[in-house]
């Protein structure tokens, strides 16, 4: 008997008990085991990927004489002062550094992606094929409509161009959300099929293929 498959099958069935009753003890047990194990895994992952290599092991470590890394270690540890009420404000220091770094990253590095998306939106509106021309016009108009939909600083009712653009944008967004919804539904069913195959095929050997 493959104990791994048996364990996986028990976990799968335990999660499915949620469908029968949202508060049943088996579901609550597997839920807590899952959260515990997921956090446990992240402890090991962060430890071996970031923490331990900073202390020892490579050229960018304290062991290699790179004492500058003592700064982020102390700064990172300061975030735990939030659990000590009298000095909880100290936790703002590392959070501010992280937030500032993130904001700088958005302003410095994401324009390349943004501009790439923008330049790719300059479609050829008169192509050799009729279908290509129609498609490119639809692409351009629905894109403009969607962008207009997110303009909240211009009054929509007063401007007929805005009004029409917003109307078109709303329908385009509905189509996009419908497509995203359809893909999500299929992905979830695909996962469900995989779990059924695991139970009926890998565990019970009732289904092949």
């Amino acid at each position: 008997m493959d104990w791994g498959i048996l364990a996986g099958a028990i976990c799968t069935i335990a999660v499915w008990t949620y469908l029968a009753d949202h508060q049943n003890p088996i579901w609550e047990l597997i839920q807590h085991i899952y959260i515990g194990l997921a956090y446990g895994w992240s402890i090991g992952y962060y430890w071996h990927t970031y923490i331990w290599p900073t202390f020892t092991g490579n050229k960018d470590s304290l062991a290699a004489g790179q004492w500058v890394y003592i700064i982020p270690i102390i700064a990172g540890l300061l975030v735990y002062t939030r659990y000590i009420p009298s000095i909880a404000w100290v936790a703002r220091y590392p959070l501010s550094l992280a937030l500032g770094w993130g904001a700088g990253y958005v302003l410095g590095f994401t324009p390349a992606v943004f501009i790439g998306q923008l330049t790719n939106s300059f479609y050829d509106l008169w192509t050799d094929s009729v279908s290509g021309t129609i498609n490119n016009w639809i692409l351009l108009l629905t894109l403009l409509g969607t962008v207009m939909y997110f303009f909240f600083t211009i009054r929509r009712d007063a401007n007929p161009v805005m009004k029409g653009g917003v109307w078109l944008g709303r329908w385009a967004i509905m189509v996009a959300l419908g497509a995203a919804f359809g893909n999500t539904v299929l992905y979830r069913y695909n996962l469900f099929y995989a779990r059924m195959h695991y139970i009926l095929g890998d565990w019970l050997h009732l289904a092949g293929g």
Partner: peptide, 9 residues
């Protein structure tokens, strides 16, 4: 350094 600090969180 940022990655190390963030990892400490």
């Amino acid at each position: 350094m940022y990655q190390v600090m963030y990892a400490m969180f």
